[in-house]
Structure formats: structure tokens, C-alpha cells
Design a binder for these strands. Structure first.
Lengths: 210, 210
DNA sequence: CAGAATGGATAGTCAAGCTCTCCGTTATGG
DNA sequence: CCATAACGGAGAGCTTGACTATCCATTCTG
């Protein structure tokens, strides 16, 4: 297929497809002559993936590029998901030293209690958790951290479901893509469900207090 | 306190504080003369809240403005949280009609099974869920939706914790702010915990397959 | 073979979120 | 009481990200 069809099929405007080609988010088509190219179904899928990561996942294009480079590389699915998580996390905001150390301590203890390896704040997932907890403390809402163990236990249950969804697939490429989708879209889906549940649970309760 | 101290105390540059005043994100200080003003601890807390919502929560300033207007209004905590959720969700991306209807059907059934009221896609929380599920389907990963009930059951457990954290506070203002923090920072925290749990659960499992 | 489409490159646009510069007024330390 | 620093307010300018538009020399296609 050629440009016009690729654009129609994926729902991405021609000018934007060209832009993505320039930025390396979409691999070049197969050349049929010095200045003509042919695209495949893989290109359509790739464009849909870019749309999913930006529009639904809210990732900046640069992160999408890094993620795509990782899934095109020859790392194992597990290593690739590590890259995905780094990009998904982004660069954590800085917080006051005091609150940061408090949050770091909480998380290190959590890691020890639950037996996972402590990576430190250079891991952006950890860095973001530290920032979020520290910010809560700075706002005077450190109570939010009281239930960290319960939250983590539930996160484990969610993660088990996530992994179940991914296993059973037959190709490495497919596993990686499913992992990516389960992580990026899965975050949005679970967050949405949580909001619905919050509204459901708090109906009535919230307005009674003082 | 005056501008310089407000800036130092909150960690927000003077020029940015002025910008926020212009945009109505920060209420004006108390005038002491036609062109001088005094700020209070409430202003510092407000600036911290703005920082939390933008840096950690990732909200655009316009949404922060809407959220702040809502918490300053005289709606009940429950109503206010409704506004917060709308803003947090943002405008959902559009999806193909086919995938959209499939996703809508899934969610409507979920609503019926669990007894919560169906609001339709005008509710942005629902709209985003529809978009995320529809996108998964368009990518050929509709398996992600198979476990919706289990995900929802866990979301309910998380939401119960969220509400427990908020109840027991003594003023309406404090309840609303805690709800906001529990929702915005809570999303980030749970997402981070989920990522750690995914890495923990998938260690080893993910690289075995084919 | 004429007119539409293509690929490639360059420049222009637009919104968000600050940041800089002025300017006339107000505090304030010596 | 005055020199100088800080203030508040308004406007213009800057930077980044993500496109979008315009050209132009090929290459298709009916």
C-alpha cells in the first residue's frame, strides 16, 4: 500500500505520517524506486500503536520513540518491559530533601517486607513513587501512606492478572506488544475503574462528616 | 508575608506566582494599599497544591484552575470530587465506531452486574475507559477486557481504602483536599506500585514462553 | 501523455507554560 | 527623610512539543 492508503487505514493524516517517518517513529517503507516506497500492514499497526501510546497513554512522542526502539531491539520481553516502565514513568519532579527521605524510608521498608529488590531513586518508577509520597507529606496528607502495604497487596493482585493476560501468547513480539498494551492501556483502565469505584463507595459517606 | 517570601516558601519563582495570579489559580493577596498586597499561609498551601497537581498529577493548568474553583465553591465533597474526576479524565480521544460500541457494551454490562449507575460516555471517566478498551481492541489485544470483572473487584477494594483514608477528618475543606490528594497522588502511587508488582510477578515468567 | 499522487525537505503554525522587561508606587534602613 | 530595594501589574518574548503547509522534482495511472 502507498501513503494515501496507509493514512486512510490508520486514521493518521499524510503530513503526520511523513513527520513520524522523519522522527523515526515509523520505519521507512520498502523502496520500489529511488523515490517511491510501499508500506505494509505492519506499518498500519505501528501507527495505531503510536496513536494508542500518545492519545490514550499520554506519552510524549520522544518516549514513544524510545519504547518502539526497545520493542524493536533484541532484548528479552522482561528487559523490554523495563524500558517501557522507565519511559512511562518519565522524569520524576524534585521534592524537598526532608520529605524525600521520609518517602524513601517508607518505600525501602515496604520493599524489605515484601521481598522485592530495592533499586533506589534512579529507577524512575521508584523516583515517581517517592515524589508522590513526599508531595503528599508536604501537603500535610501523609496519612495516605499509612495503608501502603494494603495498596501494595492489591497492586500484586492486579499485576498477577496483568501477567495472566500476557502469558499464553505464542511469539515474543506478540508478548512484548501485549505487555506494553497491558501496562499503558491497563493503567488507564484500572484508574478509570478505580474512579468509578470511588464514586460508588463514597456515595453518601462523603457528605455526612462534620 | 510578601511576594518574595511567598515565592521562597513555596518554591515557585516570583514570575510564575504572578502568572498564576493573573490566571486566577491563586487568589489575590489582601490589599494593604492600592498597589501592595499581603499573602498568607493559605497562599503557600495553594501554591503547593498547584505544584502537586501539575508536577505529580500531570494536570494542565486549565484543569487545575477548574479543580480549584470547584473546591472553593460551596458544593458538597461528593459533588466536588465529581468535578475533580472530570478534570482528571480530560477529553477522551475518539475511537472507531465499531470498537467504541463494543467497549460501551462491555462497560454497560459491567455496570449492571455490579450495580452502579450507567452514566454514558458524556462522563469523561466512562469516555476514557471506552477509549482505552476500544483502542486495545483496535490493536488486537481485546483479551485485556476478559478480566474486567476481576479488575473492577480489585478497584473496589482500592477505593474502599481510599475512602477510609479520607473519613475521620474534621472539616469539609480538609475532606475535600484529602479526597483530591487521594485521587490525584493516589493514582500515581498505585500505578507505581502496580509497575513494581508487575516486574516482581513477571520476573522469570515472561522470558520462558516460546 | 496529462494530471494526480508520491517522497522528501523546509518553513510555518499553534498552544502551553512560563520568563523577562518596564514602570510607577511603596517600603525601609541609615 | 531620602536613597535604594522590593512590589504589583501589564505586556511582550521565549521554548518545547506536535503537528501542518508549501514546494518541487519524480513517478504513477487512466
Amino acid at each position: 500500500m502507498r501513503m494515501a492508503e496507509l493514512s486512510a487505514e490508520s486514521g493518521v493524516p499524510v503530513a503526520t505520517v511523513k513527520y513520524y517517518l522523519r522522527e523515526g517513529l515509523l520505519p521507512p517503507g520498502e523502496r520500489t524506486s529511488p523515490n517511491q516506497a510501499r508500506y505494509s500492514a505492519a506499518h498500519v499497526q505501528r501507527l495505531r500503536l503510536v496513536k494508542a501510546l500518545t492519545e490514550v497513554g499520554g506519552l510524549p512522542l520522544a518516549s514513544v520513540g524510545a519504547v518502539l526502539a526497545a520493542i524493536d531491539g533484541d532484548a528479552t520481553p522482561h528487559q523490554t518491559m523495563g524500558v517501557v516502565q522507565q519511559e512511562l514513568a518519565g522524569t520524576p519532579p524534585t521534592v524537598s530533601e526532608e520529605a524525600g527521605e521520609w518517602a524513601t524510608g517508607l518505600l525501602r521498608d515496604l520493599a524489605e517486607r515484601h521481598g522485592w529488590k530495592w533499586h533506589g531513586a534512579e529507577d524512575h518508577t521508584i523516583g515517581n513513587l517517592i515524589a508522590a509520597l513526599a508531595t503528599a507529606k508536604e501537603l500535610g496528607h501523609e496519612k495516605l501512606a499509612d495503608r501502603l502495604d494494603e495498596y501494595f497487596a492489591l497492586a500484586m493482585r492486579v499485576a498477577e492478572l496483568d501477567v495472566e493476560v500476557v502469558t499464553g501468547l505464542t511469539s515474543f513480539d506478540r508478548i512484548i506488544e501485549a505487555g506494553l498494551v497491558a501496562t499503558v492501556l491497563g493503567d488507564r483502565i484500572f484508574t478509570g475503574l478505580r474512579h468509578i469505584a470511588q464514586e460508588f463507595v463514597s456515595r453518601g459517606v462523603l457528605d455526612q462528616a462534620p
